[in-house]
Design a protein around this nucleic acid. Structure first.
Lengths: 188, 188
DNA sequence: AATAAATTAGGTCGGTCGACCTAGATTAAT
DNA sequence: ATTAATCTAGGTCGACCGACCTAATTTATT
């Protein structure tokens, strides 16, 4: 579907997006960063909108995939397991500059239906993944609505964490433990 | 500090921001929307950056203020009270188009230090406000760290809700109740 | 009334942008 | 070897942008 040149273009575009945001991203700058002529970039992506959509769809797909693969070391207790899962996600948010990209994505998605759709699919997958993980921890007969309630607390929390993390007065690890504890109680 | 003309300009600018985002906001469009000449807008706001900063700082200040004023009807139990507080905030997020503005703010704040500072102050206030509200509900001897833990769950949840709300499989009212219950348990 | 400050109007400037076009080069398929 | 598809280079176009400038008018202060 996409050759190495296409990927190279998107890679350069992502660097610019991280550094300068949606505003700073232009076809010309992408071309310069990729060491190509403008028309060449436009051969691969007819319009800026298409480039942006491909860029962000790709990012979300990749990110969702990295979540799926995520396997954590076995833990002594289900609470520990949950706590480790949450901490892992929070750390992932903190470490990479993906938080910056996500902020752009949220803004762009309001005005680009292709991106909006990709975001929706991403959160759908994320929801499923969290639900599955919680299911492993929850007791046998745990109702689906109870599971949904837990995810409905966890999912917004995770996405909001990258916005408010600098204003919280609790460490990520402490917070993970507390939230895990709280969700664990909810499931039982 | 700012006359009615200045406010009128910012009001028009906010309309454009809501409708077309940061990308679509230009001094010329603001001038047109405000029925002024470009130079006239520039008399009030020397640069686009200053206009944007004033616009978003004002928005956040106003929004923070509306939170402070927020008084809820007395509830029979502290859980109900907490649940109503959360629901009120969630509904507020859903009803107005402020979610759109916030998404722009988060993205812009990464590249505009004045906006970043305003965002930081906003979440500082928000944190304090939530902490105060929880204090009213929590038992007498509730430790400060316990309170901080509760806020550290609640605050990210609220901000993340406006991102993920469409993907949750639980209603806002149900979710408020569940979260209130969970936080209540945490405080005791 | 004089004067300073605030406000309005109209226009120009260099610069960047996305889209578009043509033509040449390379590669793959037949 | 011919042909078609893919890829590259260089350039042009109209549109929009922010910043800047000058001059006129209105409002407030003294």
């Amino acid at each position: 579907m996409m050759g190495p040149k296409g990927k190279h273009i998107l890679s350069c575009a992502m660097n610019i997006l991280k550094a300068s945001g949606d505003q700073g991203l232009s076809m010309r700058k992408v071309a310069e960063a990729a060491d190509m002529r403008l028309s060449n970039v436009q051969y691969y992506f007819k319009t800026k909108e298409l480039l942006l959509a491909a860029l962000l769809e790709g990012f979300l797909l990749e990110y969702a995939e990295s979540m799926q693969v995520l396997t954590l070391p076995e833990q002594p207790s289900p609470e520990k397991k949950l706590s480790h899962l949450i901490l892992h996600i929070l750390k992932d948010i903190e470490k990479s500059d993906c938080a910056v990209v996500f902020k752009e994505i949220w803004a762009i998605s309001e005005r680009n239906s292709a991106v909006k759709k990709a975001v929706d699919e991403y959160y759908g997958q994320f929801h499923t993944m969290l639900s599955d993980e919680l299911k492993k921890i929850a007791p046998e007969g745990c109702k689906k609505t109870t599971l949904n309630n837990a995810v409905a607390i966890l999912l917004p929390f995770i996405e909001g964490y990258c916005i408010t993390s600098s204003n919280l007065k609790v460490s990520a690890s402490e917070l993970s433990e507390q939230l895990a504890l709280v969700l664990y109680k909810l499931l039982f």
